[in-house]
């Protein structure tokens, strides 16, 4: 554990708490892509299935339980409790175009042709693109509530910090994980536009609005 990874994981935790706060406080999930949240639940389930047979640490286990639990809870909130505020009309990204390539890629590009390694690779590839429905929705709406942009910033920062963590681990331990690295690089890259607007608008006290 190094400072980059710890901060990254804490940012990830923070992003989920911000999202829960947004939903509970506004009693609405407007502006949040249900498809992205569903994909995250799938990412966590397929990746953390090793919870039952691969022990790393108490920290690791508790975080895995939290990420699986909270992602399912968010899916429940959006699909059941606050269903009326969910806006499927704007949530039009075709996730089959994401799921199918990720499944195919996981079958060809994995560390071993075992169920666990294929599921793990799938979860890593899927996580890289899971934010796309959300960014697509943001693009269609043209604006976002400030709290939603804080959620996205925390989520993007978590990914960015993982890159620093990998640079540090490569230097300190000779740690190498090409699948996670390439997917992580792609994932962080998807946030570049968002980061730019967040920096130039939200952090200067303005509303998050995309140029027409």
């Amino acid at each position: 554990m190094n400072i980059f990874r710890l901060t990254a994981d804490l940012m990830h935790l923070a992003s989920i708490f911000i999202l829960l706060l947004k939903i509970q406080k506004t009693r609405s999930c407007a502006g949040i892509s249900f498809k992205s949240q569903l994909l995250y639940a799938l990412v966590f389930i397929t990746r953390y299935i090793d919870l039952f047979f691969y022990w790393v640490s108490l920290y690791n286990t508790l975080m895995k339980i939290f990420f699986i639990g909270s992602s399912l809870y968010i899916v429940y909130l959006m699909q059941v409790k606050f269903r009326a505020t969910n806006d499927p009309v704007l949530d039009t990204f075709r996730i089959e175009y994401l799921l199918a390539p990720c499944a195919l890629l996981a079958l060809v590009a994995n560390y071993a042709f075992t169920a666990q390694e294929i599921l793990w690779a799938f979860s890593v590839y899927l996580e890289a693109g899971a934010i796309l429905p959300q960014l697509f929705m943001l693009q269609r709406r043209g604006e976002a509530e400030t709290i939603t942009t804080h959620y996205l910033f925390a989520l993007g920062a978590y990914r960015g910090l993982y890159l620093l963590n990998w640079i540090y681990r490569y230097w300190a331990e000779g740690y190498v994980d090409w699948i996670a690295w390439i997917a992580g690089l792609v994932q962080t890259g998807l946030y570049t536009d968002f980061f730019y607007i967040y920096y130039t608008k939200v952090l200067k006290g303005q509303k998050f609005e995309l140029p027409a």
Binding site: V56, N60, F67, Y111, Q116, Y162
Partner: peptide, 10 residues
Amino acid sequence: LETVTIKDEL
């Protein structure tokens, strides 16, 4: 079950 790489990250 053995994994190929050490999966100690989240």
